[in-house]
């Protein structure tokens, strides 16, 4: 409800904030189709050649494949871990639950550089070779808390008597999980897969520190920034990444809302975190 006719300062603030947040992102697609190697106004006309350039770069294709490989592995592993942790956290009481959960959620607020350096030190100490798998390891570490957050709210919202009803009707625990629990938290699982996939796809610091010779996309982009002539291509690549990210996150949010809306509950992510 609106009171009076004065300026709505909240709206002004919101618009200013959005401009500040998203204006740089809007520059990406603009320069990605600008027919000039120099990133500056005025624009010189439309071209699709930067995108075409991308298509022909082998290093880029290799890094895209690497990223896909890392992101898919990460999202599957962290969602699996998330399912187990969220299920345990919402169903079974165990001593020190709050502390343990807090500890698991810590990477959510820890600076990534610290996670990256710490992991690097540990891996080197263990004598493990850096590879895409070490990147996956690092990504799982930072993605699992997100996965737990999304899945906790999915599990929390599920009436636990539904599982009991299934047992009561003669189903085993395993089949109960398969026939009742899984379908009911599926939107949460899909949402978790999409979110962790996106995070892993865009993550730079950990990938930069932990990858060996195989670069992921963000690392590749960073390496290209040294060559001014490559800048428009990087812009084009950034545009694609931006679009993919937006689409994935919208999808994830849609699934998450579906899982809660079906039960007619509030839709705050934090709901699942105690």
């Amino acid at each position: 409800m609106r009171r009076g006719t004065g300026i709505n300062w909240l709206a002004v603030y919101a618009v200013a904030y959005m401009v500040f947040l998203y204006a740089p992102a809007i520059l990406l697609p603009i320069f990605a189709v600008n027919d000039s190697t120099i990133i500056a106004f005025p624009l010189r006309g439309f071209t699709g050649k930067w995108f075409a350039d991308l298509w022909s770069s082998e290093a880029l294709q290799a890094s895209a494949l690497n990223s896909l490989y890392v992101a898919v592995s990460t999202c599957i592993v962290s969602t699996l871990l998330g399912v187990c942790a969220a299920r345990a956290a919402t169903r079974y009481p165990f001593p020190g639950k709050k502390g343990i959960m807090g500890f698991i959620m810590l990477p959510l607020v820890l600076p990534e550089i610290i996670v990256a350096v710490a992991l690097l030190v540990v891996l080197v100490q263990l004598g493990l070779d850096l590879s895409l798998w070490t990147v996956v390891l690092g990504h799982v570490l930072v993605c699992t808390p997100f996965s737990i957050a999304v899945l906790s709210s999915a599990f929390q919202g599920m009436d636990r008597s539904l599982e009991e009803a299934s047992l009561d009707l003669g189903e085993t625990r395993f089949n109960t999980f398969r026939r009742v629990t899984l379908p009911l938290v599926m939107p949460g699982i899909i949402s978790s897969l999409l979110i962790t996939f996106t995070i892993s796809l865009d993550e730079f610091i950990i990938a930069f520190f932990l990858t060996g010779t195989d670069a992921t996309l963000p690392v590749y982009i960073w390496s290209q920034l040294r060559f001014p002539a490559k800048l428009p291509s990087v812009m084009a690549l950034g545009t694609i990444l931006l679009l993919v990210t937006i689409v994935l996150l919208i999808l994830a949010e849609w699934f998450r809302r579906r899982s809660t809306a079906r039960r007619g509950e509030d839709i705050s992510i934090a709901g699942g975190l105690a």
């Binding site: 009561d168 003669g170 189903e171 009911l184 079906r262």
Partner: peptide, 20 residues
Amino acid sequence: VPANLRPTNMVFQSYAIFPH
């Protein structure tokens, strides 16, 4: 003897109808 092997069935207070 677990619930799934007992000759009893329950009507829950919340009914516990499977929504899906």
